[in-house]
């Protein structure tokens, strides 16, 4: 039993360490990677739950990747699990930057590094679009108009008007709350 628990911590650590070492191109990249690992491979988290955790990670202060790791670690193994995943997430950048800081000018000006980076950026964009389609499918399947309108409205707000994400989260939360109240009233009337 103790062995099984230790395995879980070890798995949390190695998973987040590997994911963090590969999150090029901003914090959101860790979401598709985490989804693959924790939702599809390990089945420790549900699809909907992953979206909830992303919302929390996004609207809390700090880096999205760190916040998402804390949430996953906490869910799987409590506070200790969260500490394990934070260390796993922070170590790769800490090690990599420590090494690169010794010769950062050479690294910055290296043509092969920048070619690899340019290519990788394309791959990262493709990975993000892939996960967006998978996630949007779940919303479309429900065949309800409201979530679709929220999706389109939020997209326009963030993309074209650069509205602060906290405001978007707040407004969409209120919409969800009102929707729940309306539905419960309808349910009561039918009875």
């Amino acid at each position: 039993m103790a062995n099984l628990k230790n395995n879980r911590y070890l798995k949390l650590f190695t998973s987040t360490f590997k994911l963090s070492a590969c999150t090029f191109g901003g914090g959101f990249v860790i979401i598709p990677l985490m989804r693959k690992k924790f939702v599809q491979e390990l089945e420790w988290i549900e699809e909907q739950e992953m979206l909830d955790l992303t919302a929390i990670a996004q609207s809390s202060p700090g880096a999205i990747a760190v916040n998402a790791s804390i949430l996953v670690g906490y869910h799987v193994a409590g506070v200790l699990g969260a500490l394990v995943t934070v260390v796993g997430t922070v170590l790769p950048p800490l090690i990599i930057i420590s090494i690169i800081s010794l010769f950062y000018k050479a690294f910055r000006d290296n043509p092969i590094v920048s070619m690899a980076m340019a290519g990788m950026l394309c791959g990262v964009a493709a990975v993000i679009f892939d996960v967006v389609i998978d996630m949007a499918k779940v919303v479309f399947k429900k065949k309800r108009l409201l979530p679709l309108l929220v999706l389109i409205g939020a997209f326009i707000a963030v993309r074209f008007y650069a509205v602060n994400i906290l405001i978007i989260i707040l407004v969409c939360g209120v919409i969800g709350a009102i929707d729940t109240v309306v539905h419960e009233k309808k349910g009561a009337e039918v009875k």
Partner: peptide
């Protein structure tokens, strides 16, 4: 209900990123 309201918004933000 609140979380259901947030989920589509999260997808929109990831799409924008």
């Amino acid at each position: 209900g609140i979380l259901a309201g947030l989920r589509p918004a999260v997808i929109a933000m990831i799409a924008s990123a």
